[in-house]
Amino acid sequence: MASERPISALEVRGLTKRYDRPAVDALDLTIRVGEFYALLGPNGAGKTTTLRMVAGLLKPDAGSVSVMGIDALADPVAAKQITAWVSDEPMIYDKLTPLEYLEFVAGLWGCDASTAEAAARDLLDSLGLADHAHQRCEGFSKGMRQKVALAGALVHEPRLIILDEPLTGLDAVSARHVKAILQARVRAGCTVIMTTHILEVAERMADRIGVIISGRLVAEGTLAELRARNGAGDSSLEDVFVALVDSEAVAA
């Protein structure tokens, strides 16, 4: 099992980010290699801020981030080399075709050209974009754009994949494709950390689930562990999540 591997894929210690209030409050988080980890939380809980700090998009006020044993704050280039980031708002270039976009991403990550091209074509094929490979992205729907962005994240064979609401805007078939691809990556040894508001996705896909509220990790574990903590063995993740949010609101 993944839990027996020695190095953590992601180790976050005392991670802190403040704006007018603490967005992330001395967060500790450990994600094992080969794990599918779902980070849940209500709106404004600090999920995206946490992931943006891990991906190197935001500088933390305090704390440390280690990706596969690499200090991501001291050596961000090395950490980025093995990390991929996908946000809920697909950021691609309207004037590039999907294949050109993947070529650009592969070039940025310094991938071997022929290997990357084969990987790009495979990805476009598996995401149902093969017929659109040579069309500019400017006319694409949000779902298609999201799939292009996801292909970009995967084309350089990352070892840690960070996804912020990746299924937003995808139709059921596309969402299934994406989930299948992510699960295949996890089976191949990749680590995935994903935020989502679709609790059913977390329930069905995640090895472990973390719940973050007001910038703090308030619960973590497998679905069974979270259920046990909630005191109801057959409750859904939604029940567990709502109970956690309610109890934190009462405590606050």
Partner: peptide, 11 residues
């Protein structure tokens, strides 16, 4: 148009 992509690239 893709600032996150460039910012997360290893360079």
């Amino acid at each position: 148009d893709a600032p996150d992509l460039v910012a997360t690239a290893p360079l």
